[in-house]
Design a binder for these strands. Structure first.
Lengths: 215, 215
DNA sequence: ACCTGAACACCGTTCAAGT
DNA sequence: ACCTGAACACCGTTCAAGT
């Protein structure tokens, strides 16, 4: 008779609880059994609402990406601004869900909302008026840069360690890490935002140069 | 008495067998128990040579990255060429180990050889003579771009599907994917190499512009 | 020194049964 | 219609025992 003290199970509640579990305990801790116990339910009850764990994760991925479409991009602004807005929104979304975003990006299942996001990106880059080939190349490059930085940044403390590399430098100087030692001060400051902007601006300027030479 | 028909277990043999298993069956199929059975050994025998599964994976990651240091980069070439060589070597390495490289890149454990690779990259970018801040930003950007493209490309067939997006376009036109439809021809050709070169050249030109304005 | 086997504490998922 | 519980086929890892 626990059913009288508990609201009926619905997939919304399952998704929400799963996301809380992931954000608080980490993705690797998510199991159908632990999730069920957090819901106060038999492990198998979940399977009446969601077919399996893979579907649960895909649902979570789509839900998260959904938020990207709620953030407006000014339609009258120049394409440079729109593009910057879009990638900043994407980065912000990643930082809001740090324990699930890397696996969302790595996931090779085709997500409806991943497609929709790609479509959004292509739409903005098309506003340059450049030929299709250039549009696709630039979109790919922007997407790769953004996702690469998300992985870099969400490595989090670990990424910071990779950067400073103090573990392997403890006692004496190691020629394998000479440059890391020399640049330690700058590396330790971890200015990913500045590095990202450097890469983004380079790509935008590349596009502008193409526009100029096409005139 | 199977021991007489089998060479004694050594960590090299374990690593090699694990890598074969991953390359043929996929990373998700790697288990200590399956690995042991492939080695013709009790599951627990492995633990006498390698402390646990995480250590096994880290060992594999380091072994793979080791190959990067075998590929020579011409020390007398201009930095642009050296940088291109380095990133091409890295991409080639990723393509040689497609089923393990994404997890190598996602791994937040600090790998000795990941540091060494970063050091290599920093060393080449320093040859520009630009200030430390710029060197670190450009290195970050190049690293993000390269890793982002590796994820894009190693999504493999799945990535191709995301690109073409045919699953969601089957019957009628969907406004969510209008740009994908329009650009389907170019997207389907999947010219990641060209897209990567576009991004890479943009960053190199960004660095060259900084050099010019510093003169 | 090296390998084995039972055991522990977990997984995801199926299926027949209960209410 | 919805939930339960036993069961199956797996995991990684510990530990005492064997050779």
């Amino acid at each position: 008779m626990p059913s009288q003290s508990r609201p009926p199970l619905h997939s919304e509640l399952i998704y929400q609880t799963a996301l809380e579990l992931i954000q608080s305990q980490g993705l690797e801790k998510l199991s159908m059994r632990l999730l069920a116990s957090k819901l106060g339910v038999d492990p198998m009850a979940i399977y009446h609402h969601i077919p399996n764990k893979a579907a649960l994760l895909n649902g979570l991925y789509n839900n998260i990406l959904e938020e990207l479409f709620l953030l407006p991009i000014p339609d009258d602004a120049p394409w440079q601004t729109q593009l910057k807005n879009l990638v900043d929104n994407f980065r912000a979304l990643a930082l809001r869900y740090p324990s699930i975003f890397p696996s969302l990006l790595s996931s090779s299942t085709v997500l409806y909302n991943k497609q929709k996001a790609l479509n959004l990106l292509l739409g903005v880059v098309r506003k340059t008026g450049l030929p299709d080939q250039a549009v696709v190349q630039a979109s790919d490059a922007v997407f790769a840069l953004v996702t690469g930085f998300i992985f870099l940044e969400l490595g989090g403390l670990e990424a910071a360690k990779v950067h400073t590399g103090t573990e392997f430098l403890s006692t004496q100087s190691n020629p394998d890490f000479g440059h890391i030692e020399d640049l330690a001060q700058v590396l330790q400051s971890n200015q990913f935002k500045a590095s990202f902007d450097f890469g983004f601006d380079a790509i935008v300027q590349g596009l502008e140069a193409m526009l100029k030479s096409a005139q």
